[in-house]
Design a protein around this nucleic acid. Structure first.
Lengths: 221, 221
DNA sequence: TCAAAAGTGTTCGATCTACACCCATGG
DNA sequence: CCATGGGTGTAGATCGAACACTTTTGA
């Protein structure tokens, strides 16, 4: 019989870096190694629901961006028995995150996407797939916002894109493009206590997004 | 316990239309309905391998383009028991296709992507996902060639793209773009017995593709 | 000689890129 | 009044859409 698990690549953004939330394994196999949070699939729960539950259990967050990456199913990916896994990735605002009781900082770690430790099973490969998928998705769906607080500056947003895509973007052109899309609302608020011109804070315009989407609109970069 | 199946969306191109290969179900549940070819996952076979086997069994083809779409895992997608499915899509050259012995034309049918019959389980949804994925993939990876014979005209290729993307493309610009990419080799052959200027036949340049890919090249439309 | 589809030249406007510059704030 | 990062104007290059035109074949 083939067993099925569901694993989550939870992305966050902090200190201008793209991060992944990893958990230290309590049990064999691979006890003590870092791994993706996840669980075996329960007969009475959908695969999406299983990913949601894992997220809730670990980060205490509901209603967050969650999308399937793909299934991984080599015969030998898991030692001792046949286990395939279905992987999801999530985008969360790291400010809203507080680990559930019972998860110490030693157990639950935000790692830089480009400085990952040794990982259990094929989780390295899964994270690479997640990152690749995110890189593509972020260019034609406005999902980068999910990594930021409700209110953010244009520079914040640009840094998110630079961290995900691992390229430098031109400030002028990035702003022009975002302006044209009309997906941002000026909140009227500004940065405080900064030793330079304070940035205007924006929020994402959900309604405009829905409206544009119906019209077959195409977000680009 | 959760069971796992692997299903294949097999795409072909004929009469300027994008087609999907469907099979009439022999057994309950949904006996007599059209469905995607597939099988339950065997413990000793990888999920990719399972998709390959299905393809071989039905079309007698090896070595064809095959990519995972995603897993479908609603609790109630399959009647009577819990079955999740992992779906793949394949691109084949319909000219090379001949159904394996035992599969009559009544049983195995190429259907227009926009004229699908009633389908078993959630297979309609799976085909829609496959088409959506194909639409995206085809724009930044040169995979459309897989639907054509070894040698093809530029008009053939344009029709493939138009059938997949369901848009009309401008002849002049399509050709200019393809020319710039240098992915086509002029075979020196031409169409025969056509009542108009015969088209030059090209083939896909595998080596150039690998070379360009290493250099971080980006196929676009 | 005609119809049909292959294949090419060229214009115009939109978009992208790059660089230079001004602005508001804390120290 | 200076350093710092926020925010804008604009010229030039590149790209894509559209249209008109020539070419080669079978009937």
């Amino acid at each position: 019989m083939v067993e099925t698990s569901v694993d989550c690549v939870i992305f966050g953004f902090q200190h201008e870096k793209l991060k992944v939330l990893l958990i230290k394994r309590n049990n064999e196999p691979s006890k003590g190694l870092m791994a993706l949070p996840g669980d075996f699939l329960d007969k009475s729960i959908s695969i999406y629901g299983s990913a949601e539950n894992t997220l809730k259990k670990i980060t205490d967050l509901d209603n967050i961006f969650l999308e399937q990456i793909q299934a991984f199913g080599s015969v030998d990916r898991y030692p001792g028995k046949r286990v395939i896994t279905i992987s999801y990735y999530a985008l969360i605002n790291i400010e809203n995150y507080s680990p559930r009781a019972g998860y110490t900082a030693e157990k639950l770690v935000w790692c830089d996407i480009d400085k990952l430790p040794e990982l259990a099973f094929d989780h390295q490969k899964i994270i690479e797939s997640a990152h690749k998928k995110l890189k593509r998705r972020v260019r034609y769906e406005p999902i980068g916002f999910n990594l930021l607080p409700k209110e953010f500056s244009l520079t914040n947003l640009q840094q998110v894109y630079e961290a995900i895509l691992q390229v430098e973007l031109n400030k002028r052109n990035f702003r022009t493009k975002l302006n044209q899309m009309k997906l941002l609302i000026n909140t009227g608020n500004k940065q405080k206590n900064v030793a330079h011109k304070p940035a205007i804070l924006y929020k994402f315009d959900e309604n405009m997004y829905k409206h544009l989407k119906e019209g077959g609109f195409f977000f680009k970069l």
